[in-house]
Design a protein around this nucleic acid. Structure first.
Lengths: 332, 332
DNA sequence: AAGGGCAGTGTGAGCGGTCACACCGACATG
DNA sequence: CATGTCGGTGTGACCGCTCACACTGCCCTT
């Protein structure tokens, strides 16, 4: 592997001039630059990221901290970050943090505090992400893709407006004539600016009773269990599910209990995962622009890394997609 | 940030001794080691990955090349790699390559050829991954998570036995009494050791006619279109789908055409994505151990990186999971 | 008693870049 | 004509670590 010294020799200039060309400094004559570029090309030279990181003190890279790589919201956010990073020529790293347990959080923080991690984007949709965010030392350039209500403690934090989205979805159900809307929650919505809050907003403003929330995990089995409980209650006619996977479990539970969707019970999901339009019935859900969130986080992280001013995040607001899983209650 | 020199000073030894402790060389007295460890702890020292990579010539890291981060097979494989890497203390990078276009392949190869990329795992399920694998210079330590039939050209290549899995699934359908089985293929099965081949095997061995394959993309919309075409043909009673998402599109197409599953047509998927057990009907599919594949690839990549002998990959064979979407044809 | 091994430790150099600064010629200025 | 300024270039040192090698005792051999 040739180094800038080799390139310098081949081009008949000093290594510093090569460095200037690489960082396109204005202080180099056009013909000198051309000669260097030609030598670079001839030798197949590629600057070493490791050397740069060492010298600069920070890598030109972004590391994503997430608690999961398979779940749609996380994976799609990662996708957005990666796309933007690739376009900008930055490397991207990934670090999964499975729990909010102190030892694991500390290890994660140590790992991403390394200079070679570059800027950090913490996907703080859930407790483990939030824990990492809070434990991260100030000197680490980091931003959060967060629940809207996550305490930002001086950190840049970007979020989709889930509160409003949840309120819209709930209003849709109420407008259809449902007396109230039940809610099956995922681990990520504790926040005051989240789905839970929006659901309460909408219920409150129309004077509908606010039923107890059913908490479940990320796994569909727990959603199924929650669905069975809801199915046993004849008063339940509308359910807002924490995400589309949850909706799937609930839907199957309703089916197994002999309830038709949307005939007996209407359900709404969250996220608009790729398959939801093809279910039977096709799912009414809230489309979330996770990829856009990821891109915005990338740009914020780069600003943090380079010390530039934070750009205004360009986000597409969540929007309700009405399909077949919602309808008016029987006898309405 | 303290460096090994600071630690050395604090412990009253030379920096080289600190380095020895970090790499747990046997040539250091127990008490000396203890003193160094104490100093490390006191100062909160963490070795710099960038400096190590520069000095060593290769980073202690794994970079995953994939064409997608959201699709289940890719994401689950990534998850397996990340888990294993985290357990071993290696950083993980990710590089998406969207197409097999020469310029993009070259850029990808350049990026992962950098010393800071460490070992490389190419998820070569599709043409773009295969293209990267083939373009990768010999000196880059890389392994492939591949289609079984991918030409390995001296590269270590690990795969799940999709051929046998597809044959099993097809035999299941045939045993149910179907005259033949149709196949909707995804972009990843061109290989001679893949799903397509297994399907042909099973059809051939029982003398069933081999219908034309319907190719579609990764998107469910194209699967839906394929499903509509199949639904129009009254001879079609059994369909083997390239993966579960495809099965979802096909299932909806059948439904929209007034065909019942499994009453009129049986369908089988591939992958066993988390929701498939909760569909109506629950999907008969082939469970694939992508996470195990990822772990095996990680270990192979580390062996490649450190020059050790290749371990025997421990893989869980794909297995057919029979649920509700398959049954005997009408009048059987 | 002189030599040879060996465990344990220290020193120099180098990985491939970047920063700070010195330098040099050309032109404008007093 | 001496001086200042500035575009364009080169030199030294350094980032934090690991390598190769030299060195110091100490014990064992002959």
């Amino acid at each position: 592997m040739p180094s800038i010294r080799d390139v310098a020799a081949a081009a008949g200039v000093s290594y510093q001039t090569v460095s200037r060309v690489l960082n396109d400094s204005p202080k180099v004559r056009a013909e000198t630059r051309a000669a260097v570029l030609a030598a670079i090309d001839r030798l197949g030279f590629r600057p070493s990221r490791a050397a740069r990181a060492l010298s600069l003190g920070r890598a030109r890279a972004i590391t994503v901290v997430t608690s999961n790589t398979v779940l749609y919201g996380y994976a799609a956010t990662l996708q957005g970050i990666e796309e933007a990073a690739r376009a900008a020529g930055l490397a991207v790293g990934i670090r999964v943090v499975e729990s909010a347990e102190p030892a694991e959080v500390k290890q994660t923080v140590d790992d991403v505090s390394d200079a070679s991690a570059g800027g950090v984007v913490v996907i703080a949709f859930d407790p483990s992400g939030v824990a990492v965010l809070e434990a991260l030392p100030r000197h680490v350039p980091a931003v959060a893709a967060a629940e809207p209500a996550a305490p930002d403690r001086g950190r840049v934090s970007i979020a989709l407006d889930e509160r409003r989205a949840a309120a819209d979805a709930t209003r849709h159900l109420l407008a259809l004539g449902h007396r109230t809307v039940h809610h099956v929650a995922i681990p990520s919505e504790g926040g005051a600016g989240g789905r839970l809050a929006g659901w309460r907003d909408a219920l409150g403003e129309s004077g509908a009773p606010i039923p107890a929330v059913l908490d479940c995990g990320w796994d569909i089995a727990s959603a199924y269990a929650a669905g069975r409980r809801l199915a046993a209650d004849p008063d339940v006619t509308a359910i807002l599910c924490g995400n589309d996977d949850i909706a799937q479990g609930v839907r199957r539970a309703l089916y197994d209990a002999g309830k038709a969707v949307p005939g007996d019970v209407s359900i709404v999901g969250f996220d608009d995962i790729p398959g939801s339009a093809y279910w039977t019935p096709a799912l009414t859900t809230v489309r979330m622009d996770f990829a856009g969130l990821g891109r915005a986080c990338f740009h914020a992280a780069v600003a943090e890394l380079t010390g530039q001013e934070q750009p205004e995040p360009a986000l597409v607001a969540p929007s309700l997609v009405v399909r077949e899983s919602t309808g008016s209650p029987r006898g309405f």
